[in-house]
Design a protein around this nucleic acid. Structure first.
Lengths: 122, 122
DNA sequence: ACTACATATGAGTAGCTGTTCACATATTGC
DNA sequence: GCAATATGTGAACAGCTACTCATATGTAGT
């Protein structure tokens, strides 16, 4: 067996505080929940989508209105709406050629607003 | 002037509802605020960071404890802590070799919890 | 000074994101 | 059916993210 130049420090084994760590492990959020929460926040984590959601929180808008309001191409808006639909942040209804979007529920609006308020006072 | 095969549909010009759009434009969130809110949500938008924050919301932990609790390399944890520091989601203090991290304030904890609760009942 | 340890960081990299462009789909009026 | 319109979507692509690995920094003990 060759002599290693320097044994790598394995912090994971040597340094933890057993009781604190096992307590924290026990109370750790389940991976699935963490993943879902992360996906929710990720969907909120883009300036374009924040603008869209903020506008949709106030009134129902069709795709081309959104496009005009936030000054982005219809295609870009459509792609982003797909993300928002996937995260269940918006709902929509079809009316002839038009698709009318609005924010899904007040919990979503509240979460969004809380984030915005947080950065406003920071 | 050559004849174009098909004039591109310019939805931005043809389809908007002037009053609704100008109202929505007036009430549109400022770009800077949208950007900052997006950055806040983006920092929350990763399962690893959600796990870390959830643990840090309950108790102060040093880096290697976090590493043990969420079962990730110390290096990965350090990199993620940098992101969290950058977004002001955590605070820390040095104590000898150790760095003790905890969640920055109750607003951050509330926002995190609200996101988690939202996916739990969804 | 030297070693061990706890943490931070730069480089490298595979995978992901957000846009544009071109086109597909669906609805309406002729 | 055909043309115009509103929306949706796949491909391509530049830029970003979140790891790993190696190494740097800083601290404590000998």
């Amino acid at each position: 067996m060759p002599i290693k130049k320097k044994e790598r420090a394995v912090c994971e084994v040597s340094c933890d505080h057993p009781e604190t760590v096992s307590l924290a492990k026990k109370e750790l959020i389940p991976a699935r929940q963490a993943q879902q929460a992360a996906e929710l926040f990720k969907a909120l984590g883009d300036a374009t989508r924040v603008k869209m959601l903020r506008a949709l929180a106030k009134r129902e808008l069709c795709v081309c209105d959104i496009s005009a309001v936030i000054k982005m191409s219809q295609s870009a808006v459509s792609h982003q709406l797909r993300v928002l639909r996937g995260a269940r942040l918006v709902k929509y209804r079809k009316e002839g050629k038009r698709a009318w979007y609005s924010i899904n529920d007040r919990h979503v609006a509240a979460l969004l607003l809380q984030g915005i308020e947080h950065v406003r006072h920071a």
